[in-house]
Design a binder for these strands. Structure first.
Lengths: 329, 329
DNA sequence: TAAGCGCTTGCAAATATTTGCGTGATCCGG
DNA sequence: CCGGATCACGCAAATATTTGCAAGCGCTTA
């Protein structure tokens, strides 16, 4: 099989130079010609030399809801590193105020011919309306992994932190310290991890009356926790560290102290939570292991392996610092 | 099949010039003619030729040294958002342990046919060795902007925070509080912003003997600050908030308190620095303005405008919180 | 070490698109 | 019905893009 490039060139009726340019994605080739060459390439079964050549770029979309919460950069770092080791590059997609929506990003990634997509902390805000783009991915057979973002109806492989365990150990910790009136500050109503935590909380005997919802921000946590504090809770379990920090602020604003009057537990154990005032007791997600698993699952799909659409549950662990204490007598 | 624009022109019975004007939305075409051309365009399935770099891959590389320091995610969010508004997508490139090097990322981005690259906090660690990939970008004429990462020899447009002012206001603040023995914790020796801060510090009468270097991490700050504390400083200016947090830790480890015995000033004003213990006095970089400026500069280059390779200096401001206090009598 | 092969690349010709300018048509107010 | 202003549009020059030729490069083989 000599002159492979020449052969293709002949078939399309262009010069070798042109085929070469197409192969390397060089500019200076019209779209029509490029298309023709690409087609001929496939027809002749030309084995596209390694890497991204004319082939799908070795890009992977990493869709995150935000970067404000330190857990997401941390996760991006893990996933980005793991992907790099496998020869992929992460395309970071973050929603911004007035910016691009998650669905827009999916279209964009599709256009960029990404090899796969990892969603972390997905689009809960419009749980019902906006599943269209997930289905689109599914139809196109594009490798996809969901992290902490269970979308029940679709069967993508999923990697999650076990929210049931998280809620249980948090509640158990507070109970062991003698707390009876324990409240919860969760994310939006359709945020699946929050919903799961709520269920576990109730199942363990938590009072569903003492549950507040908030946007995932410090300010949101502040507002929600203020309502809880007004109702006399002595312990608060939060769905993120940021919410916990907001809760601390709300407690203080009410003239009380953490953990003197109210104990606060966060979730994630994101960076710097041991530098806060007070150092935050929190439930750590094993993001390192989760990120790696997500990448493994994705790469397996890209390599055409059949990956079961199961949900891998990772066990969280309690990190006790100084925002929880024995309940005041 | 040739003369595609001509073909359309013939079909409608107008000149190529007119079709061209319609295509580009130029004035000087009657509504009726415009309509006719537009229709013919659809009928013939005309596809506007796309010059590769402009249209095919509206990607922009965003190269960051890490994501651990909250300033980088914050910056990524600003830049990503600004790019999205202009119709570009950010490809996040972060160095990771044992992962891809900055030079590797440049090659990768080049292969991806990105429209441009933004470097933030660049490759100072090998100031002399590793400029090759910058030169490569320069040769290829790829739009590039450097943020806080001055590379003197190359002429890329640059956006930076004014380190001289930063050092001056930090030192002035400590002096005003009566501090005489003020030390500095900087980044690696060839980190340009650190070098500039050092120069300004000395120029303002700071003692160059009381300057320590560290890797940009909390632990690095801890180690460097410990040496300073042992030499009896009462104030420490740090080159990042993370270093400052490490410094706080070092002070406490030495059995002293912040700000009671030692005042600490950070740099960046990254997120959550008002939740730390103590809330950190720090020099704020206007990252929002800087990120936007970087994107504007980049897009201008992509649009073929001539952008002067100047360095835009942004003025930092002091944010006084609770890690600085009057020197102990 | 030379020769051959497969591919890449500089260059210039060919081709396509945009734009400055002028012409002729049309529209108005005398 | 005329003169002048305005506008759409084509001509052709200017500019940009596409493509083939052939030289060049790096590799393997003789």
């Amino acid at each position: 099989m000599t002159r492979r490039l020449a052969e293709v060139a002949k078939k399309v009726g262009v010069s070798e130079a042109t085929v070469s340019r197409v192969l390397n994605g060089k500019p200076g080739v019209s779209d029509a010609t490029r298309e023709a060459v690409l087609t001929a390439l496939d027809v002749l079964g030309y084995e596209r030399p390694t890497q991204l050549r004319g082939d799908r770029a070795r890009l992977v979309g990493l869709v995150l809801p935000e970067l404000q919460n330190p857990i997401f950069p941390a996760f991006a770092e893990v996933v980005g590193g793991a992907l790099a080791q496998q020869g992929f590059t992460a395309v970071l997609c973050t929603r911004t105020v007035g910016g691009v929506s998650e669905a827009d990003y999916v279209h964009l990634l599709l256009q960029q011919q990404v090899s796969g997509v990892v969603f972390a902390g997905g689009l809960y805000a419009q749980a019902d309306a906006a599943h269209g783009h997930y289905e689109l991915l599914h139809e196109r057979g594009l490798p996809t992994v969901l992290v902490n973002a269970a979308v029940e109806r679709l069967d993508f492989p999923q990697v999650s932190c076990d929210d049931v365990v998280a809620a249980e150990i948090a509640l158990a910790h507070l109970r062991a310290l003698g707390h009876e009136r324990v409240g919860m500050v969760l994310g939006p109503k359709d945020h699946v991890p929050s919903r799961r935590k709520l269920e576990a909380f109730q199942a363990a005997g938590g009072d569903p009356e003492l549950v507040e919802r908030a946007m995932f921000s410090l300010e949101g946590g502040h507002a929600a926790a203020a309502r809880l504090v007004a109702r006399g809770v002595t312990g608060v379990i939060c769905a993120s560290d940021l919410l916990a920090l907001g809760t601390v602020r709300a407690v203080r604003r009410a003239g009380m102290s953490v953990p003197g009057d109210v104990s606060v537990i966060g979730f994630d154990d994101s960076a710097l939570m041991n530098c806060t005032d007070p150092p935050l007791t929190t439930v750590r997600q094993p993001i390192d292991a989760m990120g790696r698993a997500a990448v493994d699952l994705l790469v397996a799909q890209i390599d055409k392996a059949v990956v079961p659409a199961d949900e891998l549950l990772y066990e969280p662990e309690l990190v006790v610092r100084a925002s929880t204490a024995r309940v005041r007598a």
